[in-house]
């Protein structure tokens, strides 16, 4: 069943919970990292498990595959460490693991999914900026959150004009 792990940049508050949790379950090496851009906006960078993944297409060793949930995964035993996946990734995601002598990246918490548990970052994000599930479910949820945000902005605009309190 196709699943997506979607990180919504407009909902992210830059708290770094995703990164902390990911680091904890991956022995000190997070696969999602929050970057503070010069503008001051925090941007979490992680694999987006692209539908037409350039890394799968470019890998000369055929080490990158898609699993039954749609997660793009690097097989460390096949990886030759040429970094071509990093070169073509629009998000700069794959990382060379010196110990493993292979490229690594987010596997959408493959171990957890096998046990029927969602990726840890989506479980713990306090701002609910990370979504996991079937594409239609995730999209529905994003639209619901966006509607809430628009409504809230309208309310606060009204209170800006001194009409009432935002409760």
């Amino acid at each position: 069943m196709r699943k997506v792990l979607h990180v919504d940049y407009s909902l992210c508050i830059g708290c770094e919970t995703c990164q902390g949790v990911c680091e904890f379950i991956h022995h000190g090496k997070p696969n999602i990292r929050v970057y503070y851009t010069v503008t001051g906006i925090p941007i979490p960078i992680t694999c987006r498990h692209c539908e037409k993944a350039p890394c799968i297409e470019v890998c000369p060793a055929g080490a990158i595959f898609r699993d039954h949930d749609g997660a793009v995964i690097i097989n460390p035993n096949k990886c030759i460490g040429c970094m071509m996946c990093l070169a073509v990734c629009p998000f700069g995601v794959p990382t060379f693991d010196v110990k493993l002598k292979a490229m690594t990246k987010c596997d959408m918490c493959a171990d957890r999914r096998q046990l029927g548990m969602p990726p840890a970052c989506s479980e713990m994000c306090p701002a609910e900026a990370i979504f996991f599930g079937k594409p239609e479910e995730v999209e529905e949820e994003i639209r619901r959150r966006t509607a809430e945000k628009i409504a809230r902005e309208r309310i606060s605009k009204v209170s800006l004009e001194g009409v009432g309190k935002l409760i």
């Binding site: 770094e16 919970t17 995703c18 713990m124």
Partner: peptide, 15 residues
């Protein structure tokens, strides 16, 4: 600090 740093610290402490 921030929420995530506290979460991470709590996890390592629990371990």
């Amino acid at each position: 600090s921030k929420v995530g740093k506290a979460v991470k610290d709590g996890l390592y402490a629990a371990e």
